[in-house]
Write a protein that binds this DNA or RNA. Structure first.
Length: 417
RNA sequence: CGGGGUGUAGUAUAUCGGUAGUAUACAUGUUUUGGGAACAUGAGGGCCGGGUUCGAUUCCCGGCACCCCGACCA
């Protein structure tokens, strides 16, 4: 993509109404536009990051057998009344509105009840199970206070997946698979080393936990206790003697860390399906409730978390798998012929390139923008670089650049990214 | 929802009870072109409503918006 064609533009100053690093950088870079507190529009560069994350998540969910759908944002009051969760006393983040004829509807903050209702149309026999379904949905939650930029908004994109199993045993098998799939997602996003399976409250049974995926991050809202030797953590909310006993661990084994919840998996059991009447007929002809699990990933929150972690005082530093483009090709000087050629060559080779082809923009500004926008590789083509033997290539995370002959750039880039 | 704070140009800020200043971004021209370039010219501003006052952007009241701390986060 040609930078001269981007309708967004970078800003030199931090916005005065944001203090969180992710919002400051994303707004300055033109990745997002703040519509109101807790609601951000995703602009071309930001959307590319969101889509990259979605793609990785989708691939991993499909790999464990899930099918993708999109449900509705408008939700049926009666469906939620079946579990008592239409009640504002029980769920205090509802956005509710009404049709012209007066019918009350809710705006989806979760899709647990609606998907159970929906699946009643498709699950009737043990032969229909298991079923795994996921979607990428904009969730609407009337939070009393939005904060932390895109990390906690009133409107955000979440991947939610639901598993429908014949039994607890079958469920547990998938739960384990989904845990591994989630870890694979965070690894691919570049967060593998600092994301931990974290025991948290919830789960269908008193001796069970739910599991969160917590990424160590100072801007996170959660406090977790990280096991110093083993690869897991415990959420502060259940860090007590009972939990430690269950985990067969000592308090001293853990250290306290700030973290951001980037995923959550949860065993519901059969209760909700019983309440809502989702059951199947087993091989003996007996009716059984479906065993339910739910699995979430905060897609847009992840953009914020990644921005918080992979950035420096000059700007963003996207990990390659989520970067909007692999390469920021910067052309300096009036004659851009060589840069144009390289742009075409890289693009033809399947490299995603943001091409700074803006005429009459000073070198300093182009460099500053490249640092702010944070593509993993910067390639400069200028009179000087050509005199030195070709293109000047620098990683965003490094300060030293190297010269690569023009005819070797594509191969070099492919090897590097 | 409790507490605190802030609303001035597209953005970031300054000053002031009496004609609102700067930087940047924007437009035009000339010169520039390796870390946000120089000069000139131009356009652009006091959140909304009420009150006090000869006069309010400034002081007071109400509203709205935004930020922070706490609470909340299934």
């Amino acid at each position: 993509m040609r930078q001269s064609q981007l309708f967004t533009r970078t800003k030199r100053e931090n916005p005065s109404d944001e203090t969180s690093k992710n919002a400051q950088l994303l707004i300055r870079g033109g990745y997002v536009y703040k519509e109101m507190a807790g609601a951000y529009a995703w602009l071309p560069l930001g959307l590319r990051v969101v889509n990259k994350i979605k793609k990785i998540v989708a691939e991993e969910m499909e790999a464990i057998g899930s099918e993708e759908i999109i449900m509705t944002a408008l939700q049926n009051k009666e469906v939620w009344e079946k579990t008592g969760r239409w009640d504002d006393e029980k769920v205090d983040i509802w956005f509710k509105t009404a049709l012209k004829n007066g019918t009350e509807v809710g705006l989806g903050w979760s899709h647990e009840e609606p998907i159970i209702e929906m699946m009643k149309s498709y699950i009737t026999s043990y032969q229909d199970l298991p079923k795994y379904v996921h979607q990428f949905q904009t969730k609407l939650r009337n939070e009393v206070r939005a904060k932390s930029g895109v990390m906690r908004g009133r409107e955000f994109v979440m991947k939610d997946m639901y598993s429908f199993s014949v039994s607890e045993e079958a469920h547990n098998d998938f739960y384990k698979k989904s845990t591994d799939a989630y870890l694979q997602v965070y690894k691919r996003l570049g967060l593998g080393d600092i994301t931990y399976v974290t025991s948290a409250s919830g789960g269908a049974f008193t001796d069970n936990f739910s599991h969160e995926f917590q990424t160590l991050c100072e801007a996170g809202e959660d406090v977790v206790y990280l096991h110093k030797k083993e690869n897991y953590a415990v959420n502060e909310e259940i860090f007590n003697d009972a939990t430690l006993a269950k985990l067969n661990a000592q308090k001293e084994d853990f250290e306290m860390k700030k973290a951001a919840e980037v995923g959550n998996i949860f065993t519901f059991g059969t209760e909700k399906c019983e309440q809502m009447g989702l059951s199947f007929t087993d091989a003996e002809g007996k009716k059984q409730p479906v065993f339910l699990g739910s699995y979430g990933v905060g897609i847009t929150r992840l953009v914020g978390v990644i921005a918080e972690i992979f950035s420096d005082d000059k700007g963003l530093m996207w990990p390659t798998p989520v970067a909007p483009f692999h390469v920021h090709l910067v052309a300096l000087g009036e004659d851009m012929t060589q840069a144009e050629n390289l742009y075409k060559e890289l693009t033809d080779a399947g490299v995603e390139v943001l091409f700074d082809d803006r005429p009459s923009v000073m070198a300093g500004e182009k460099f500053a923008d490249a640092d702010l926008l944070g593509m993993p590789l910067r390639i400069v083509i200028s009179k000087r670089s050509l005199e030195n033997g070709g293109a000047e290539i620098k990683k965003r995370t490094e300060t030293e650049s190297s010269i690569v002959a023009l005819n070797e750039v594509v191969a070099h880039v492919k090897k590097t990214i």
